[in-house]
Design a protein around this nucleic acid. Structure first.
Lengths: 132, 132
DNA sequence: TTAAAGGCTGGAGTATGCTCTAAGTCAAGT
DNA sequence: ACTTGACTTAGAGCATACTCCAGCCTTTAA
């Protein structure tokens, strides 16, 4: 990290470590428009600000909940154009999708607990010959 | 569906409709070993039993909660070999993964609710110029 | 001054999970 | 007899999301 009386800035490998995204992935996200190009330093090196990192963090929240990169891209686009109504729509759709995912995860979680109990019984020898 | 005093059996297109998987996907799952080959009828047509459909349903629970097909394949393999201990391990790993996913979804759900409220305020004109 | 470390670009390659196509078989209805 | 429609196969193609590579440039330390 580089400081000298300006805003702190970070190299790609520092950001990579902080965000757990590879440098390649960070460059890829920039290429496809998920991240705005950061400032460049000596020799064209990317210099990320804390704000850039905040955006990356938000983006990874969306990504980890399976928002497709194309949709994140649209969101970023609208955000940049200050089209809040569109941003709202996209985020609200994703909220609904998250709620659907929660339901599926909960249902499957139950089912798996049930199956695990079943295998546990077999392990304990409580039911020698009962396969479903 | 076909009945004539035997067990009921279903064609691939019937199963496709019931499970919301395309016929191509069903054949693909069979090819990679996620599904055991069903009985064949006249002209080599697949004849799925209710039990087959039960397996497909279980498999889609796993798939919808992001268990990789390779891992489902391993599970099916161990299941067929009656290696319950291995089945247990794989399912328990997936249970942990589901719990991780639930946490991430819940965190992101909160974050999005917050952002949505923010966009709502902008829409209502309550905060004209505040971008984060 | 030179060599190692780290970054740059464009583009090719990979993994996953389907999805589609071509060419053929079979059974039933007209 | 012949057409229609649903099925079969092997294999090619596609979308998504990376991941890696070659070849080059700059900075820094020895």
């Amino acid at each position: 990290m580089h400081k000298d009386r300006d805003k702190p800035s970070f190299t790609i490998s520092e950001v990579s470590e902080m965000t757990e995204l590879s440098a390649d992935t960070l460059r890829y996200y920039e290429k496809i428009g998920l991240l705005t190009s950061p400032q460049r330093g000596a020799g064209m090196q990317r210099m990320y600000t804390s704000e850039d990192i905040g955006r990356i963090r938000f983006l990874t929240y969306l990504k980890r909940t399976h928002m497709p990169l194309k949709k994140i891209q649209q969101y970023v686009n609208y955000y940049e154009l200050h089209e809040e109504a569109q941003c709202f729509v996209l985020l609200d759709e994703h909220r609904q999708d998250i709620e659907r995912q929660l339901k599926e995860l909960e249902a499957t979680h139950q089912l798996i607990q049930f199956k695990l109990a079943h295998f546990q019984e077999i392990k304990d020898g409580k039911s020698k010959e009962s396969y479903e």
